[in-house]
Design a protein around this nucleic acid. Structure first.
Length: 257
DNA sequence: ATGGTTGTACGACAA
């Protein structure tokens, strides 16, 4: 089973790229973030015509998540139980016996801002819920845009970024707290090229200069992590015309589809 | 350099 995640920064702008990339990369599950459409305007028909089962949870203009799967999506759920949140950031579904949680963690805007506080509270609520999800689902994947670069090697210039949003110590601690539940960062289970990032700012030709951060992740429960055989970032879509500012992350698991 | 670019929706706001 191949699971991928991609912050597409508008599903309607990126629909042709999602169809073309998924045709070539052949994920069995594709989690999307920043779809930026309410569910009634999600491009369900062209995706279903391409063979996808579709679950989506969106809103006007901002946020929005979706899960595409080759097999039927079961037990679809939205949001973090017990967290009051009017932003569409979490979607979960079971596919082929694997519980897939698609997350779009708040950006946080700037350290010390109201949105930064919301981000830290949100991540703490996520942690509490995932502890329960791990107990319920031996095969659990938590994938998406976490808006946190966990380590210095995930940042093109860690000294420049130290203390800034996406790489402040409280955010890194919140990410480590997710790993402390027993989730593994599948990307770091394997040798990776130096300078591996998943997001590059649109400005200042950041992608061409590889001024990026690795903030998109595929986390796996212990039993799922044991079956992980590969994880990589596919930079190619970021270099194409009118790209998302994020690249897809892809992980393979030794599981039947 | 408080800059720069993109998406949503047509003026800011979010990232």
């Amino acid at each position: 089973m191949r699971i991928a995640t991609w912050n597409v920064n508008s599903i309607n702008v990126r629909l042709a790229q999602v169809l073309a990339w998924s045709e070539a990369a052949r994920p069995d599950v594709l989690a999307l973030q920043e779809t930026k459409v309410p569910d009634e305007r999600f491009p369900r028909a062209p995706l279903e015509a391409a063979g996808w089962h579709v679950a989506c949870h969106g809103q006007r203009a901002y946020n929005g998540v979706a899960i595409l799967a080759r097999a039927p999506l079961e037990d679809v759920a939205t949001g973090i139980p017990g967290l009051h949140d009017d932003q569409a950031r979490v979607l979960a579904a079971t596919v082929g016996g694997v519980r897939v949680v698609c997350v779009y963690v708040p950006n946080g805007e700037a350290v010390g801002s109201d949105k930064y506080g919301y981000k830290l509270r949100w991540m703490e609520a996520l942690r509490g819920w995932l502890r329960e999800e791990l107990a319920r689902h031996p095969l659990l994947a938590v994938v998406g845009d976490f808006n946190v670069a966990p380590e210095p090697r995930d940042v093109h210039d860690p000294e420049l970024w130290e203390g800034r949003v996406l790489y402040s110590e409280p955010e890194r601690a919140a990410f480590r707290a997710l790993l402390a539940l027993g989730l593994c960062d599948t990307f770091r289970r394997f040798d990776q090229p130096e300078g591996s990032y998943s997001w590059w700012d649109y400005r200042m030709r950041a992608f061409q200069r590889n001024l990026g951060l690795r903030i998109d992740h595929i986390l796996a429960s212990p039993a799922l992590c044991e079956r992980c055989t590969a994880c990589r970032i596919d930079r190619a879509p970021r270099g194409r015309e009118r790209p998302s500012d994020h690249a897809p992350v892809v992980a393979d698991f030794d599981l039947p589809t």
